[in-house]
Design a protein around this nucleic acid. Structure first.
Lengths: 184, 184, 184, 184
DNA sequence: AATGAATGAGCGTTCATTCAT
DNA sequence: GATGAATGAACGCTCATTCAT
């Protein structure tokens, strides 16, 4: 029976990813249960409150983000790697991250989300450090600034769909802004 | 009694600003009414639907934003003016802008919010153009990109409170990124 | 000022007739006040509760009904007069009588409506008696039965709009049923 | 638990029959829930909107009506059967039919009520045709006229309780009016 | 006397959560 | 373990009625 339970858990999480992405965190637990093909009670057995549910749905997203960041951020040229990482994160941390809002509005990330969030930070930290060592990336910014900017870009598109060309140019501004030389 | 009504309207709006800022747009109308010291019916007399209420709470914020932008963006040096405007907007378009989300999710801005939004855009457009004419600001970005970045930074701090120093440095990245010369 | 008050009262009643006819008794007092061009308070000054308001709007309708009945029921031939009266009442006591429902559901007619109702009954009684004296109208029915049937026909069309031809034939059945001779 | 749910559904319907009969369709869902001994949410689980609730409360009434009509309308003598059917319907389609008003005011019968309504019409049609074939029932009336008259009588008593003797005599007028021979 | 703003109870409806089966 | 029915507290909104001006 453990196997069944685990399978159900997975199906509930998958359904939640879909439904939260489509309808936002306000989607009802019933909807998710139906999509997962289980009863509402089952969802609550696995995630006793909605907070838990949202948190455990967010965590894999963050891990995916970390994975994407790691993949993008390990190319040969450290600076190019940073550029790619920022672009990757800013483009692929979309709508779904609105979940974080719900969590934070209700008392901050829990264990699961915090851990995943730190894993993302670690990856970014590594890549950033490598890039700064080349001397071409400004050293007055750290992981926090990067993360802040990336979250911002991600949320800006979540709120209001925007022409991809606009988004791309905006991201380029951020990337260029991370370069060392002060200008003019 | 027009005077009393106007006073009440102002108190309701003030309460809404507070409450929406504290608890998000999901805050109940009852809560706002209580904070304003009026009955729930009074809120609905002034703003027949929640959308109306949110919209008319948001509009003054946008106007304040436009006013701040205009103030910041009219200094002598056009580029310094742009820098100031971006900083000003990014710092002072806080939590409360989450209201826009509610509106957009429910069918777009209404008249009041659209008008205010355009007023903001106009100010930014003017300042940006002036700055670009100096040749020191990149010309591959327009109002949309600026607005997108500013919204992003604003929302990023709305979602998750952040050390002001971090925010300041992140904003500096954006400002520097707007400069012309591509680097290294 | 007495004159102004009386004029207002009349305008409120006229507005109520229109609005109740259009939207049913559920129409809000506000709507009626607006239509009458007065404030809501004025309506309540004249009719302290909604019951009062409905009742005093209904009474003139009943009086109109009585007037129509009297006009129709005073022709030369007593039986023809009865036929005309029934037809007249059944056709012209339409939708608006739904008001009676509200009243009855809330504790019966009040003074004003009761008096008007009795005035209708008196007219019908006179005409019926004259007709019965010809020996051609059954004597096992009285005003109550007539009134009951007429109300029925009137309300049947109020609830569900019906082909006028159907209504006419149905009314003819009632008229024929009032004749003396039992058949086959 | 399907059994419990079904039982609850039945209790809710029974409560609704009572409450709608006593207080009209405007009765609150809360009241019905309390009468049924369940929470308000339970009522809405079974009948997602008030329309649904009214409709499914009305439909059994119509079916009962059809059943009664069929029972009354299948005796040996076709004319006697018609008489019985009209009497039966007019007497037993009481207050509760006011429900139809709510439905019609809100966009017509739905599936359930329409189907039941047609079942009633079919029964009446059969009996009427048989009776007309005897040559003793006027052929200028059809199901529509009968239905109209019956609804009328039913609603007349719904609106204002009336002495059963009066009602009986009024119904007799209708029955006699359906006979062939024109009189006088 | 008239106004129309304020009130607050009530309504239909939704949803996270609990619990009997 | 899973189910899905039941719960009941909210919520947005309406409206008869009251009352300060």
């Amino acid at each position: 029976m453990r196997a069944d339970a685990a399978a159900n858990r997975r199906r509930v999480l998958a359904a939640a990813q879909e439904v939260f992405a489509e309808q936002g965190v306000e989607a009802s637990t019933e909807t998710i249960a139906r999509r997962a093909g289980v009863g509402a009670g089952t969802v609550f057995r696995h995630f006793p409150t909605k907070r838990d549910h949202v948190e455990h749905t967010l965590a894999p997203h963050l891990d995916e983000l970390a994975a994407g960041a790691r993949a993008a951020g390990t190319g040969g040229d450290a600076v190019a790697a940073l550029d790619a990482l920022v672009a990757e994160m800013a483009e692929h941390a979309p709508t779904k991250l609105a979940m974080a809002g719900h969590l934070l509005a209700e008392g901050g990330f829990g264990e699961a989300a915090s851990a995943a969030s730190e894993r993302v930070g670690a990856v970014v930290g590594e890549v950033l450090e490598r890039a700064q060592e080349t001397g071409r990336i400004r050293t007055d910014v750290g992981v926090e600034e990067i993360y802040f900017l990336v979250r911002g870009v991600a949320q800006a598109q979540a709120l209001l769909p925007v022409d991809p060309a606009v988004r791309r140019r905006a991201i380029q501004v951020v990337i260029d802004g991370l370069r060392c030389a002060p200008r003019s």
